[in-house]
């Protein structure tokens, strides 16, 4: 059982306060959807948990099973069991995807996976996500289509088996088929590894495939509403207008 706790989190980017006191707890096996209009602070929350240097935490804490995440370096957070599927995965020329995956798995697991088992593991995980095996020999994310990048992020999640995964707009830019494949991948990880998931999304579309246990609405750097899956349905009908008014006040 793992728990990610976020308490009174305030975050600045270049002297501008983006998060203004966020409280949230995500446990193993739970799926939390974070929804909200553009600029509400959803991605800032994701990157702050992962430790991107652009984001400065000015107040509050992030704890993973009681351990101070903010005191950890970016790589230490990943090794502690946090995973961020990025909205815009970075291209790294000259580094093959297979080399990257193995280096990453070695770092997270603390030892190099045995080659024969590893090859089989990767092949199966790729097949589940409908990823062309030739992608493994290509440079990391280089020339990947939007859909390939997102599938590749979920592939990493399924191989690295984090305790808590933060999926930052993994659904954006995906066509219906790709969305289904990616959603299946997320659901499979929930069942097989009991991962706690923080699903950040602007649209309710992905929530038809990945059923959330909790829905949180962010606006103006705070969580302004919380509920069960029914809240997502209401947002689908009404949009974010009523929250935007509250923020402007």
């Amino acid at each position: 059982m793992a728990t990610l706790e976020i308490r009174r989190l305030h975050v600045q980017v270049e002297d501008k306060e983006i998060l203004r006191g966020v409280d949230l707890a995500v446990g193993s096996g739970e799926t939390h959807a974070i929804m909200g209009p553009n600029g509400s602070g959803k991605s800032t929350l994701a990157y702050s948990i992962a430790g991107h240097p652009k984001y400065t935490v000015t107040e509050g804490e992030i704890l993973l099973d009681g351990q101070d995440v903010l005191a950890m370096s970016v790589d230490a957070r990943a090794r502690a069991g946090l995973f961020l599927a990025m909205q815009y995965p970075v291209e790294v020329p000259g580094v093959s995807m297979s080399n990257f995956l193995r280096t990453s798995a070695t770092a997270i697991r603390g030892e190099a996976p045995k080659l024969r088992i590893w090859v089989k593991e990767v092949r199966e995980a790729m097949a589940c996500l409908d990823i062309d095996p030739s992608l493994a020999e290509r440079n990391l994310n280089e020339g990947f289509s939007g859909g390939e990048k997102k599938r590749h992020e979920i592939l990493q999640m399924s191989l690295l088996k984090p305790k808590i995964a933060i999926l930052d707009e993994t659904d954006s830019g995906l066509d219906v088929d790709a969305l289904r494949v990616v959603s299946d991948g997320i659901n499979r990880a929930r069942v097989t590894t009991d991962v706690g998931t923080l699903l950040i999304t602007h649209y309710t579309r992905i929530l038809r495939y990945v059923q959330p246990d909790y829905v949180h609405v962010m606006a103006g750097g705070r969580i302004v509403d919380e509920g069960g899956p029914e809240l997502a349905s209401r947002l689908e009908e009404e949009g974010y207008d009523r929250y935007a008014k509250g923020v402007a006040a």
Binding site: A50, A107, L160
Partner: peptide, 14 residues
């Protein structure tokens, strides 16, 4: 490219 560095570190790589 510091974004590449962040990406690799976010996957546990020192």
């Amino acid at each position: 490219d510091d974004e590449a560095l962040f990406y690799l570190m976010a996957r546990g790589i020192p």
